[in-house]
Design a protein around this nucleic acid. Structure first.
Lengths: 331, 331
DNA sequence: CTGAAAGCGCTTACAG
DNA sequence: CTGAAAGCGCTTACAG
């Protein structure tokens, strides 16, 4: 990082401005000087500083991406879509984890803003709505992924949570199950949590199955919690023959719990997940799950964010990704 | 990003330099002016621009992290360690994927350098040694994670691959296996590939078992490849009773393949993996694997990188993480 | 087609 | 204890 535009200009015996013109491919330049400058650039190994450029253009060509936990395989699949798309458009992405362990969520968001990111994708439902609104007051644009938010300036990319769970529950009903439990997610702003719960209840009602609230357990969606909650649930209510899980991680934990309890899957207890993570299809037994394109979800979020960056002030309607049911071996 | 130091200075009726002093907590300042300035900062909601600061200090407090694929659960666990540690030290991290699909690896590295990162952690063995050396000629510091490199300025953080596989193979021998196959990783600069293969062969030799090269298959380490290669291997050589896999993903694919072929695990075919990803312990059957602290691996890499940033020119000895064997249900 | 000047928002010597 | 000036490496009007 020591050779600057000035060095190139000196070597090529032109002004700095002329170097800038060939670097940015702008304006009319005589072929002779262009070649002189290009030669000097190559000889010196000059590379323009993105920081200096960002300083004057007020555009850093970086974005921030906030998730609960990159080590969660679901989020990491989306992250790949984010990263690939951003890179394709010449943007670099800052990664930030905000989960239960994190403190000072607002500070983390501000540190990204201080860093000069051109926009932010928030995929963590653990960032409170209050914090997000506070932050949105001074920073934009923001895209929220699969979380409900009421802020008018925040654009939303959603997954059709309601329909997904409805499909899954109908599938269980069609298989003859009438005693269906649910492992639900966090309470709060997670779009998934609210809409998936609604889809579950509505599907039961539509199938004339009364809702048993004690069969619905709300937990933080990890494999360990899935295992533990399922053990408790099936021990307390052995009559349950099927389980819908908020996400695949909970479902994998539930499968494990069934095995702990000596219950066969799917014969003694059918299990459905949500998200269809890469592993889900490969495991034994392969998991029945609600599926959608996670790489595409990341791509949509970035595309939307770049649109917002290029069109300040414009309002975009929420977008919901379509989902489908993948029937495998656990139902 | 519109309120600047100048605004604060005006409001507080002091010079810009004085504002800078209170922001950076440096120099002696009278309590009165400090309070005046602090009040102005809060009132205006001033936040210093990291870009402007980076411009003059030549330190951006950002680092780059290059991996093959963030959606791979193994890498994402390490990424979490990287991210947590960097954040704790006030650094933000740029994430970059460089896998088989990526073209122009060098361009991706340079784009990170252009972005002004203070250092780089390279965890992708898919970046060729040639590209890395070329890049290292103009950029430093660089930390390489679990890859062999001969560049004197590149610091190495390794995993004790050799010992890990030696342990695993000894374990299989102790269980009475004599016909042991191996699913190996990519060829090339991956430290894992070379050292793990060596550990495997040496352990066999130490156990007086002749090495059967046709039982060693080299594949890109994905679950799908593990499934397919295992099918082929066990079909061609049904006498094989145990399989060591380069990583857990291959091992999970191998388990699946055994099931496809009607072979019970571990009764008909024992399987051992490497990395001990979070899922490995939770699955059915739970995977026997070589384990080490992946969060810690990320932490070590960042810590080393920050040391290099703070001590330019200093040479650091390679560091190798200790490993252990976790015996579970697949052996 | 090419250049000199100002400025992006800070920090770093250097004075006072 | 506090401030005026120069400069980090670029781009943006404005001239010529």
């Amino acid at each position: 990082m020591s050779v600057t535009m000035r060095d190139v200009a000196q070597k090529a015996e032109v002004s700095i401005k002329t170097v800038s013109r060939v670097v940015n491919n702008q304006g009319e330049i005589s072929e002779a000087t262009r070649q002189k400058v290009t030669a000097a650039i190559n000889e010196l190994g000059y590379r323009p500083s993105r920081i200096a450029r960002a300083m004057v253009t007020q555009r850093s060509h970086t974005i921030g991406f906030v998730i609960p936990d990159i080590s969660n395989p679901f989020f990491s699949e989306v992250a790949r879509g984010i990263q690939d798309t951003a890179q394709k458009h010449g943007y670099n992405v800052f990664l930030c984890n905000i989960d239960e362990d994190a403190t000072e969520h607002l500070q983390i968001l501000y540190s990204l803003a201080d860093q000069g990111v051109d926009g932010l994708i928030v995929f963590s439902s653990l960032v409170s709505e209050k914090d997000l609104h506070h932050f949105a007051a001074t920073f934009r644009p923001i895209v929220a992924v699969n979380r409900l938010t009421t802020h008018p300036d925040i654009s939303q990319i959603l997954v059709d949570n309601y329909r997904g769970v409805h499909l899954a529950t109908e599938h269980l009903l069609a298989r003859g199950h009438t005693a269906i439990g649910m492992l639900s997610g966090w309470a709060g702003v997670a779009a998934g949590q609210i809409r998936r719960l609604a889809g579950f209840k509505d599907a039961l009602t539509a199938g004339n199955i009364p809702i048993r609230d004690e069969w619905i357990i709300q937990v933080s969606p990890t494999m360990a919690n899935g295992r533990q909650s399922t053990r408790q649930l099936l021990t307390a209510y052995p009559e349950i023959t099927a389980l819908f899980c908020y996400n695949d991680l909970l479902a994998l934990g539930a499968i494990r719990a069934c095995r702990d309890l000596g219950r066969r899957v799917p014969e003694d207890c059918a299990i459905v997940g949500f998200d269809d993570i890469q592993l889900a299809a490969m495991l034994t037994p392969a998991l029945t799950s609600i599926s959608y394109d996670k790489h595409e979800l990341g791509k949509l979020a970035v595309t939307r964010l770049l649109e917002m960056i290029d069109n300040p002030g414009q309002v975009f309607a929420p977008l919901a990704m379509d989902v489908s049911l993948k029937i495998r071996e656990t139902t």
